[in-house]
Design a protein around this nucleic acid. Structure first.
Length: 237
DNA sequence: GCGACAG
DNA sequence: ATCTTGTCGC
């Protein structure tokens, strides 16, 4: 992306907040897909041995078959601060994405999209920096309040409001199980995001791309073998 | 000032 | 996120 300071993750908290407000203005909340996505990349990160381990795993659609995997390890450079998660995890995830053989059509992230104090959760952050459509799927809320009741059946939704706007939808992906919070990342609208996440769940609370990215990340972080999953690891500082 | 707070 | 055993329930 143009105009992005290179070591954008090596900044002060004040500068990080400024960058978020700036980049949040580049988020597109409308569906902009040239064609139905043929591949989705599930992305996540885990921690181990002083490193952040980012994973990008590409699945074919609508089958959800694994097509490609990439893992990247980087030193932990930014602390975890609620609201600034992407400054800690995005560098490793972006590096993993760059190591993929083929760019995915859309990103499914473990975390918030615009359901964020400054409307730039990690899903939106990754979407804006890569230019790819993205969706945020989080296990809990960072901000906002659930309005209304969420039915117990799969597929039911309830809006999450914050400062006068709907920033996410609580989505029941499994009957009688805590919902996940779906939000727009970049170049998608809420309706598409919810439908997409639901398609990826298949009986589990979390979407398959995210479950796999999570499993691979933590295995890599613990130094366990992930070769039986076709990998392309790359380490850097 | 106090409490909340993605992963 | 990570540290950790068994256990209750579909």
């Amino acid at each position: 992306m143009e105009g992005v300071p290179q070591p954008w993750w090596r900044v002060s908290v004040a500068e990080a907040l400024r960058l978020q407000r700036e980049w949040a203005q580049r988020v597109c909340r409308e569906l902009q897909l040239p064609y139905p996505p043929q591949t989705v990349a599930g992305v996540d990160a885990a921690y181990g041995r002083g490193m952040v381990w980012g994973t990008a795993i590409v699945l074919e659609l609508p089958s959800l078959r694994v097509r490609d995997i990439a893992i990247a390890a980087r030193k932990e450079e930014f602390p975890y601060i609620p609201g600034l998660l992407s400054f800690r995890e995005a560098p490793a995830i972006l590096q993993a994405l760059e190591s993929l053989s083929t760019a995915p059509d859309i990103l499914l992230c473990d975390g918030q999209g615009i359901a964020h104090p400054r409307r730039l959760g990690i899903a939106s952050h990754l979407g804006v920096l890569t230019g790819l459509p993205s969706i945020g799927c989080a296990k809990s809320l960072l901000c906002g309040r659930l309005e209304g009741e969420l039915a117990a059946h799969v597929g039911s939704t309830a809006p999450v409001w914050d400062r006068g706007e709907i920033i996410a939808m609580a989505l029941r992906t499994r009957a009688n199980v805590k919902p996940v919070y779906v939000s727009i990342g970049h170049r998608v609208d809420m309706a598409f995001a919810v439908e997409f996440v639901l398609h990826c769940c298949r009986g589990y609370r979390l979407p398959e791309p995210v479950r796999l990215a999570d499993a691979v990340s933590r295995k890599a972080a613990r130094g366990e073998s992930v070769e039986h999953l076709l990998l392309k690891t790359r380490t850097a500082s």
